[in-house]
Design a protein around this nucleic acid. Structure first.
Lengths: 201, 201, 201, 201
DNA sequence: GATGAATGAGGATTCATTCAT
DNA sequence: CATGAATGAATCCTCATTCAT
């Protein structure tokens, strides 16, 4: 009604739909978002959604794919492996939080809503596992004398969990990005220090 | 067939229903669990569910209440505020992880599924905030010279996030409870050390 | 509204639904009959249909089953294998046409509408093949000196086709049952006479 | 890919579309065939279909018209009214079955699928009635002393039914055309013999 | 002349929820 | 007390049909 019922090229419409879907899913979650609502927000008709994405599940999958891709790209772009570890860490975490701060709906869908349906719990779990795996390798590589007793995998789980929790506060707007960055950098940096027992008591 | 249409005292019935509900919700999530499935597992009729709990939403709320209560009770029972900080921390974390290890369905409902519906995102957020608040106070209290610049609140967010992530691994069965406990104790203990900047570089 | 929203025992409701379904399907065919229409005619709600029959396809299947069963029963009841061939033939054809004359909707569904959906073309084809097979055996058995050159199978196809065509006229009300019976009896009786070549030219 | 976006003269396009439509309809039936499928098979766009035929119903009507026309033409071409009755019958039936054998999709649409929609049950019924009428007249004319008691109309119904059933076996490929022809010729010839009662008992 | 893009309208299906016994 | 029987209200999805280029 308001306008916008033009013929758009396929690629544009796709993004328009995904944008609408991200918004709706982020607010209401997978199950409580209706295709009607998405179509309405995208200012198109429902059949278009089905024409382009086949089903609600597939649409949600496409949303996850795009948002995950964007997220990875945004973070990856800021990572320079030639920098010293500490700087790289800073940059990575900075990019991570900046993405979340700037793309809140995206983050909410990826972090909170993606587990809403059985169909995606799997996908999300795998995604997280890859991140954890990566962090674990970084920890292992960044530690000077890696003690074989250290369970880097588990430390990575904890760090990623912490990172997500902080990120989530950012996405909610309760926390300043810079403060969050500083905290996470320190937390991860400690992780790189290796054996916890070395810490002062 | 075997039986089941007995007259049970109200309290027993209630628990029976909640037990069934926890199981179903933990496996399928809020939306993908039907009242039929719950009634079937509880071996009672659907009208009974409605008689006792009014609606699916209320039932889920009752589930959250009971599980949260049990959780708090289980953890609280092991906490002795008269012990030295380090011991208290150890006991608390031990109780926390033991509860999760023993009551996986309960944890899954509380941690993973409670965000499934708009109606409870709120509840969960509040619950987590209370925990974070508590941890923040513990951090603040446990630090010898609390520097007012330290954002204990945010540290608490990170620590709780880490704790949940590790707890989740436990609930999935991927991690040994004792290993998890040791890791978390160390992580939290560092949190008590105050300003991150004090750490060695 | 008009009445009839009573609690009926399962068996009664089932018949009520199937009755409504037969009527609707016979008038509009499989695709052009909506579950709404069937529910409305049965004076029940749509969910009942699904509760009892699962899907439109299954409902149609149940309709076919019941009508085919009734048909076979009605015809079979009149067949007495102890009678002389000619009498048995007369009785069978009589029962056949009487059923059709009395249960027009049933016949229409079985004969005309059952091929409406891919899903049932198969079933119908098989049903017809069984009838043809049976007729072929009767022909073979009823022929005094069965000439091996005679393709009873094909004769049966023709006779059954003729029978269905006549029956259909009956179901439409264009033809008197007795006339139709006489015609078919003669036609089949000729079939029993064996080799066509024996006929006068 | 290979081509297909040529400018073709109207007449060619029309046949191309009808060809595609016949194929699709014969395989899937009226309702289960989509305009998309027809357009795809015809290698043209859907708007073209609508431009030429207005609606699915009209398209199906055009299909029936063309196929019926071809059928009548094919059979009619072989009928020579100057021949003796028996030869004419042989030729007619031969042409009839040859057409079906050669144009199976056409026959299936005319015989099996045309009843799929309310909209055409009518058309088909009328078509069949014309054939029956014609056969009845032939029977009447071919009988030496037409007894007014004989219901040629009904005999024609039976014969046409038999003819269709046999033809259908041919279209399915289960029966040899020549065998089918012989059978039908004999069957019809008997029909010409007049009163059934004259037959031996 | 030809089509990619778009939609109105309706149908099947599924629950959470409630009577009537 | 307990439940089998029943439904209102959505939701997903599809398809014939039509613009705008």
């Amino acid at each position: 009604m308001a306008g916008g019922t033009k013929r758009l090229p396929r690629a544009v419409r796709e993004q328009q739909m995904l944008d609408a879907a991200v918004q709706e899913f982020s607010v209401s979650g997978y199950h409580e978002t209706s295709m009607d609502a998405i179509a309405a927000r995208a200012e198109i008709s429902k059949p278009m959604l089905y024409l382009y994405y086949g089903s609600k599940e597939d649409l949600f999958g496409a949303v996850l794919d795009r948002e995950l891709g964007r997220f990875i790209e945004a973070v990856g772009a800021e990572v320079d492996f030639t920098l010293p570890a500490r700087d790289m860490l800073r940059n990575t975490i900075g990019a991570y939080l900046k993405y979340i701060d700037t793309n809140r709906a995206s983050w909410i869908v990826l972090y909170t809503q993606a587990t809403s349906s059985q169909a995606f719990a799997h996908t999300v779990r795998e995604g997280r596992e890859r991140v954890i795996e990566m962090v674990a390798r970084l920890l292992s590589a960044g530690t000077r004398n890696p003690d074989p007793d250290i369970d880097f995998q588990l430390i990575a789980v904890a760090l990623v969990g912490a990172g997500e929790a902080v990120a989530n506060q950012v996405s909610v707007g309760d926390v300043d990005v810079d403060d969050a960055a500083e905290l996470l950098i320190n937390l991860f940096w400690r992780g790189l220090k290796g054996k916890p027992e070395n810490l002062p008591t």
